[in-house]
């Protein structure tokens, strides 16, 4: 099996890279562009904000070609369904695409999702024709409800946003994978390449991260590390790992021993 023919789909659109990356927190737009290129990501998240009325400042899209990437606008910073829906409508108008990363936060300290508001927003957005990719807790029932509503994927967190704690509950992710048919993307919590590989080895369709790359000492190198980790994890999952055993099993034959 080669990784090349292992594509995946979101809402009828085909993608090759299973690494999705954010565009926040980089030292410069130049660094953002270089990290994106090194990551090989095809889907990148962006935020929707007021334009700076002082036009002396450059903007993200001066550095990133929207034709080269699928832009996935987020609703970061929204704490109510109403705010999130409003942001998605603006995002669709700004980007002329229906793809949205829906997040409705419940708490500033943890940035955990407010799942009640999330469901409310998801229902409205799906009805309005959006392709909704919701950031949610690693909760099986929530993921099932989001699938029932008509979301295009579910994006359970591995750990709190920006925490770098890795996949704290791989068993929940496994049950989610067994429960829903839509793509499961681990969103948030990845800190290092091994975390990304773990997500892929569990069988996730993809991984979304921002801080792990942007916050690394060398973001370009980390972007490449994440690209390789996602590919390695996926290949490992497809290859089928050996069962875990408590005792040893010799690799060298006993026959012919001197």
């Amino acid at each position: 099996m080669t990784i090349k023919n292992d594509t995946w789909m979101i809402a009828g659109r085909e993608f090759t890279s299973r690494l999705m990356v954010g565009t926040g927190k980089y030292a410069s737009f130049q660094q953002t562009a270089e990290a994106l290129a090194a990551s090989g990501a095809e889907i990148i998240t962006v935020a929707v904000r007021r334009v700076n009325l002082d036009r002396s400042k450059e903007s993200l899209l001066d550095y990133i070609d929207p034709k080269k990437y699928t832009l996935l606008p987020n609703t970061a910073g929204c704490y109510t369904a109403d705010d999130a829906v409003r942001t998605c409508r603006l995002a669709r108008e700004a980007g002329m695409s229906d793809f949205v990363k829906l997040e409705v936060l419940g708490d500033e300290k943890t940035l955990f999702p407010d799942n009640e508001e999330l469901l409310k927003a998801a229902r409205i957005l799906v009805k309005e024709g959006f392709t909704v990719l919701p950031y949610t807790s690693d909760d099986v029932i929530m993921c099932r409800k989001l699938e029932d509503i008509g979301c295009a994927a579910v994006m359970p967190l591995g750990a709190p946003i920006g925490s770098g704690l890795g996949i704290r509950n791989p068993y929940n992710i496994r049950i989610i994978l067994e429960t829903v048919k839509i793509p499961v993307i681990v969103d948030a919590g990845v800190g290092s390449a091994s975390d990304a590989a773990v997500a892929m080895e569990l069988g996730c369709a993809g991984v979304l991260m921002n801080t792990a790359i942007a916050g690394a000492q060398d973001p370009i190198a980390m972007a490449r590390a994440m690209k390789l980790a996602v590919e390695a994890g996926r290949l490992s999952y497809k290859a089928g790992r050996i069962p875990r055993k408590l005792y040893a099993n010799a690799s060298s034959p006993l026959d012919g021993m001197i």
């Binding site: 565009t23 926040g24 927190k25 962006v46 904000r49 987020n74 970061a76 700004a94």
Partner: peptide, 10 residues
């Protein structure tokens, strides 16, 4: 009036 655009975000 609100005028918005895309900025870096996660």
């Amino acid at each position: 009036v609100e005028v918005v655009h895309f900025v870096g975000g996660g």
